[in-house]
Design a protein around this nucleic acid. Structure first.
Ligand SMILES: [Mn+2]
Ligand SMILES: [Mn+2]
Ligand SMILES: [Zn+2]
Ligand SMILES: [Zn+2]
Lengths: 142, 142
DNA sequence: ATGATGGTTTAGAATCATTCTTGGTTACAA
DNA sequence: TTGTAACCAAGAATGATTCTAAACCATCAT
């Protein structure tokens, strides 16, 4: 049992804020995810956790990741057509570089321009704007 | 039977180039998709086509869309977590604005900057770079 | 014509990620 | 203690997509 990292503490505090109980399952998922920059899938997280916690259910991994996402501790990404959802503990806005060949997902800080991604040979860029269309703005609401 | 549009002709020529037969099913899918800016799902295309061609199978819609994508006539988009794949007849590079509320998908030409999307209230931008990571570059290959 | 070949379609089964359901467990308060 | 609500495990269900097997159809050689 090592001293919990700053990120782990921040994540557990966010659970508190969201009024979610700090159960052993959730704490385990937080530990598995919070310092992982590889953007793992739910399956990969499940595979890691079942060693330490063999009773953990796959559904609990999904439920917990959804809870953590609601609490602002992580976010989920759908980056490719075939691939399944990936989970990202870095919630500050940033972009991603996806390798065509090995599927690796790299973080790209917003500061960098496309041409400055040194290590990555860029073939194409995709941009998605999220927000409200004109029709929905005029309807109003929350 | 109206005079085929320029886009339809271009799409059928692309089928030729890709050495894919111009079957009635493929021609029907081309007609249904090629002037549609709404980024429809496979289900929506299937629903439209079954009126004119009641024997058309859902699998054929998927197969045909995959063939058209290989031929460079359209591309498929996975824009939201819950939603299914959407198909886009505009193959020139461009971006997309997705409405949080109604799910509408709007085209955003590359010329425009984020702030210039007049009709759309932008909440967030997501960028994905596609290409080759450093490891895969050093391995080399095709 | 006849038959072989190969691409295409159909219908339904299979797959696979994700979500749902059910019944039991835990935390915690009255 | 008893009650209540959150939580979890296990497996079933869902839904999009892909696969399979058999039928279909155009083309080509006999
Ligand atoms: Mn990331
Ligand atoms: Mn588009
Ligand atoms: Zn790579
Ligand atoms: Zn809208």
């Amino acid at each position: 049992m090592r001293r919990p990292s700053a990120r782990v503490n921040a994540a557990l505090a966010a659970l508190d804020r969201a009024e979610l109980r700090k159960t052993p399952q959730r704490i385990a998922v937080v530990h598995a995810l919070v310092d992982d920059t590889s953007h793992p899938t739910a399956q990969q997280i499940f595979d890691r956790l079942r060693r330490q916690m063999p009773t953990m259910s796959f559904a609990t991994v999904y439920n917990t990741l959804a809870a953590l996402e609601r609490a602002g501790v992580c976010r989920s990404l759908r980056l490719s057509h075939d691939d399944s959802a990936r989970f990202d503990p870095m919630v500050e806005p940033h972009d991603h570089a996806v390798c065509d060949r090995c599927g690796r997902v790299l973080d790209v800080p917003r500061a960098r321009e496309r041409a400055e991604i040194q290590e990555f040979r860029v073939r194409a860029v995709e941009r998605v704007y999220r927000g409200e269309c004109q029709q929905c703005q005029s309807i109003g609401g929350s």
